[in-house]
Design a protein around this nucleic acid. Structure first.
Length: 907
RNA sequence: GCGCGCGUGGUGGAAUGGCAGACACGCCAGACUUAGGAUCUGGUUCCGCAAGGAUUGGAGGUUCAAGUCCUCUCGCGCGCACCA
């Protein structure tokens, strides 16, 4: 701090305006039906002051959303405000353009760290969470973001998670009807004829719900005493602490996201996300088209169904592989092979999924002793088990075509299994062994069917059709996407509104609580650890757990993703007590704006490219099918901000000691400089290193803007007054006077041109989210304006409007001073109409045109803007610097691009 | 391995197929100054005294004209990764 003199008194200006905005609720967004308070700047701008707004009188909406943060104990890092600054600039810009802007902030506040702290200290997670939220709020507010804080929410708010639980009940009470291709109420489900008893009907219904129960292996960490999400497990160890994690089957709640695989894939086409992001979602969904084919087991009635994307290679199937867990393994294994198979299965069962994939570069497997019959040619092929076939994908069994599949090729090579060519590569030179691309079928003729000679796509079609006719197989689509494991054995999450009961036969079954019983609060506990026998912490609360009628509550809680799946909807109607979101609010804020629909702009880190964004799209689509929301997609345009690296170009981390704390930067340079620097570093989407010298650069720019407006002598007086003042308050700013060169005079043509060039550039760059070049345009303007002997009021005023979204505090202060000095009516800068540039002012009468000789730049000529080609050609030929290259040569051709350039082609 | 993206001064980065390096950092020189780590002015891609030449990872190509379009290649980053 002591290192240098302040460029300008941001330490007084910034708190002053932050308070003013808060007092005025300047950035409150109004819903249809809201009364706009008398004198609110939004009301004044739009003629709604003191009136009740409705859809007809409200201007068009613009919904700009940040991914809400998890309020960690570490506080904000410089990566958070990068996206927040970008959205804030755009929110302020859109407001100035006349939109009704929704720009909210909230907290993704359930989560493991607060719970682990609770386990260690006994401190209730809510206490930790609230103090972290308070710290995040302070930091975010100190940056001057124009959030509508009246809509603030936290996923841990009872009024919020009540509705998260409500949405869960909607999922629970719905099924996906393949005929309508929609989620529907479970009441519309038709029972098959054999569902005679209530038990059977219940079990059938439960098997169709979008939220259902299954036994699935989970990542259990005995040391931490908790289950971890897949993304919390790295190399078989817990991300926190590095303790071993084992796979353990447990009763789990699942959400049937796979029912939406096709819609989640297809609807990517209607939204404006980056190609790479869409690609990540497509990869995750992993659609693949192929066929299911049934193979008979020789000497048995059993059929083994395989999935293949290459039915055209069926004639080349020389063996078959089942996943070790495949249910038919026990049925078909021969006595001699029994021990070997059992050993192998036991061995793979001990491996985690990770070990099975990453460590098993070398193929392994065991022969079962059984054989299958290839349906196309009757050939007997051996059946193996191997862990390179996954039980969870396709049918858990494959036909192996070693000639044309890399994995099968490796396996066959290792175990000396036959390799038969059935595809000829298109060019004769390519080796057919291991050739996996399209080619022409060969050696593919059987007694009943032949595809020899057909190109791969035709061969696929033909063989699939034949299989279908014979009832041996059919065209199938498979997805990598799995159903979503939705339960966690934790305390600090939403409890499931579910109870367990026993039927007459003593079988457990689940039942939803009625909506009227929501919210279901978690019990208070002394100890947040799981029980000794591994039950989730909620099982400790006996009073809570056991209901008077003998039923028992579900003890799992929902994962952190649950709350973030719908928070953007709640923001539109954050205080609604009757509904998760009101129909009018949803209709207004999520309306189409003439394009797809939903949130107009969503900005956040790429780490949520798949999980959060896929989960939220899924919930949204279910709610859409059920008629609860009006749009099929939640987020129309999505932008990922890049990562900010440390000054050393490395990822910021405590251990490297290269973490930049926004609080420190703010003390030294102020919020406006911080915001400006975050945007000036480079394109929003890029990864880029922090550089404190760069902050100083934009800080100096703000200082130049300050000196453009403020009288130098008055500033010296102000500094002396400040030095002797007992208390520092904004009143000291009244010592400042505007620079005398700012006058209410007509602007020169050059001044107007500089201004309007700046308006044009800043406007276009804001529309394209090119913040760095917009800032550079304002620097260019300032550098030029510094040289002006007089600074016309009309020009510098408009410049402040351009600056306002970027450096709102400084702009507001100078705006207010300008208005008071010239006796103008005080208007709110935040709602002042965005300036329009006048293209006529940018037109030059004389323009410079580059002259090239043989495509090489030699000089520029100055000609009238409307000069004809003959004039330009003559001028170009006369250019002095071109003469040495023209001498003694004939000009063969002259290329003139009007107003752009001249190219003289010589021989 | 597959997919996506990116390679421009000492640095961050600009450039609808038409004057490469805007703007900023850093550096150099000067002015003001007791002082400068404030401010202001000028310079700053490389080679060359200059004229001029070279130059956007590398090699080809298309074009009157290529950082920009095409092909190949090298390097970096991200994502997925035995998905049949």
């Amino acid at each position: 701090m002591a290192s240098s003199r302040r460029q300008y008194p941001f330490h007084l200006i910034e708190p002053k305006w932050q308070q003013a905005w808060e007092q005025q609720q300047a950035f409150r967004a109004f819903n249809p039906g809201d009364a706009v308070p008398e004198g609110h700047p939004f009301g004044i701008r739009h003629g709604l002051s003191g009136k009740v707004a409705d859809r007809r009188t409200l201007p068009g909406k613009f919904y700009i959303l940040d991914m809400f943060p998890y309020p960690s104990g570490a506080g904000l890092h410089v990566g958070h405000p990068e996206g927040y600054t970008a959205t804030d600039i755009l929110a302020r810009y859109r407001r100035a353009c006349g939109f009704n802007v929704l720009h909210p902030m909230g907290w993704d506040s359930f989560g493991l760290p607060a719970e682990q702290y609770a386990v260690k200290t006994g401190q209730h997670p809510r206490v930790t969470t609230e103090s972290n939220i308070a710290n995040f709020t302070r930091q975010i507010k100190s940056l001057g973001f124009s959030y509508d804080w009246s809509r603030e929410l936290a996923t841990t708010d009872v009024d919020y998670f009540k509705w998260t639980q409500w949405i869960f009940l909607r999922l629970y009470n719905s099924w996906f009807n393949p005929d309508s291709n929609l989620a529907e109420s479970i009441e519309t489900l038709k029972f098959p004829a054999d569902c005679a008893t209530e038990e059977k009907r219940r079990s059938f219904r439960d098997s169709k719900r979008l939220a259902y129960v299954s036994e699935a292996p989970v990542n259990w960490c005995p040391e931490l005493g908790t289950v971890l999400a897949n993304e919390e497990v790295i190399d078989g160890k817990s991300e926190v602490g590095g303790y071993p994690v084992i796979r353990k089957p447990m009763r789990q709640w699942m959400l049937r996201i796979t029912a939406y695989a096709e819609k989640l894939l297809a609807d990517l086409d209607m939204i404006d996300w980056s190609d790479s992001l869409k690609e990540m979602q497509r990869n995750w969904i992993g659609r693949s088209e192929g066929a299911e084919v049934d193979f008979k087991v020789a000497g048995s009635d059993e059929l083994i169904r395989v999935f293949t994307t290459r039915p055209d290679t069926l004639f080349g199937a020389t063996y078959m592989v089942l996943a070790p867990e495949h249910r038919l393994v026990d049925e078909i294994v021969t006595e001699e092979q029994c021990d070997a198979v059992e050993n192998y299965r036991a061995h793979t069962a001990r491996k985690s999924d990770l070990e099975r994939t990453e460590l098993a570069k070398e193929k392994s497997g065991v022969f079962t002793g059984a054989f299958a019959v290839n349906p196309v040619n009757g050939g007997k092929i051996p059946i193996w088990i191997a862990d390179y076939v996954l039980a969870s994908y396709g049918t858990g069994a494959i036909m192996a075509v070693p000639a044309h599949d890399t994995r099968d090729f490796e396996f066959a090579t290792k175990f000396k299994l036959p390799i038969v060519q059935v595809v000829q590569p298109p060019d004769g030179k390519t080796e057919w062994q291991g050739f996996t691309d399209d080619g022409t079928s060969v050696n593919s003729t059987g007694a009943e069917v032949s595809i020899t000679g057909l190109p791969t796509p035709d061969a696929k079609k033909q063989i699939t059709a034949w299989l279908g006719e014979k009832g041996l197989g059919k065209k199938t689509i498979n997805y990598k996407l799995r159903d979503w494991l939705f339960s966690r054995q934790r305390y600090w999450g939403e409890p499931f509104p579910i109870v367990w009961k026993k039927d007459a036969a003593g079988n457990l079954y689940h039942e939803a609580l009625p909506e009227s019983s929501l919210p279901l609060l978690p019990p208070s506990l002394e100890d947040y650890k799981p029980t000794a026998d591994g039950q989730p912490p909620l099982a400790r609360a006996q009073d809570w757990l056991n209901l008077p009628d003998g039923s028992v509550r579900e003890t799992n809680t929902m994962p952190q993703w649950a709350g973030s799946c719908w928070y953007y909807l709640r923001y539109t109607d954050a205080k609604n007590a009757q509904s998760f979101v009101g129909r009018d609010a949803d209709n207004y804020w999520m309306a189409s704006n003439g394009r797809a629909a939903g949130v107009d702009l969503y900005v956040g880190g790429t780490e949520h490219a798949v999980l959060h964004l896929l989960y939220a799209r899924f919930w949204h689509k279910v709610l859409f099918d059920l008629g609860c929301v009006s749009t099929p997609e939640p987020f129309f345009k999505l932008v990922n901000q890049g990562i900010i690296l440390g000054e050393d170009g490395q990822k910021m981390s405590k251990s490297r000691g290269n973490v930049v704390n926004p609080d420190d930067v703010l003390v030294e340079y102020g919020a406006d400089a911080f915001r400006l620097y975050e945007m000036f570093m480079g394109p929003l989407q890029d990864t880029k290193p922090w550089n404190t010298k760069g902050v100083e650069g934009v800080y100096r720019f703000l200082g130049r803007v300050w000196r453009l407006f403020v009288d130098a002598q008055a500033e010296t007086a102000f500094e002396q007054a400040e030095a002797t003042a007992v208390t520092l308050d904004a009143g000291l700013l009244d010592h400042l006077l505007l620079d005398g060169a700012i006058m209410d005079v007509a602007a020169t043509a050059a001044q107007l041109k500089a201004l309007h060039a700046c308006i044009k550039k800043v406007t276009e760059d804001l529309d394209g989210m090119r913040f760095n070049t917009a800032i550079s345009a304002m620097m260019v303007f300032t550098n030029e304006a510094m040289t002006w002997p007089t600074k016309p009021l009309s020009v510098v005023k408009l410049f402040l409007q351009l600056l306002a979204p970027f450096a709102p505090h400084l702009a507001e202060e100078l705006w207010a001073r300008l208005h008071s000095t010239f006796g103008l009516a005080a208007t709110s800068l935040a709602y002042a109409p965005w300036p329009k540039f006048d293209a006529a002012l940018l037109v030059e009468s004389v323009i410079e045109i580059p002259v090239q000789v043989n495509g090489k730049f030699r000089d520029v000529i100055k000609v009238a803007a409307d000069a004809d080609n003959a004039t330009i050609e003559a001028a170009a030929k006369a250019v002095e610097k071109a003469q040495p290259f023209l001498a003694g040569k004939t000009i063969k051709k002259v290329i003139i691009v009007p107003k752009k350039m001249v190219n003289l082609i010589v021989a």
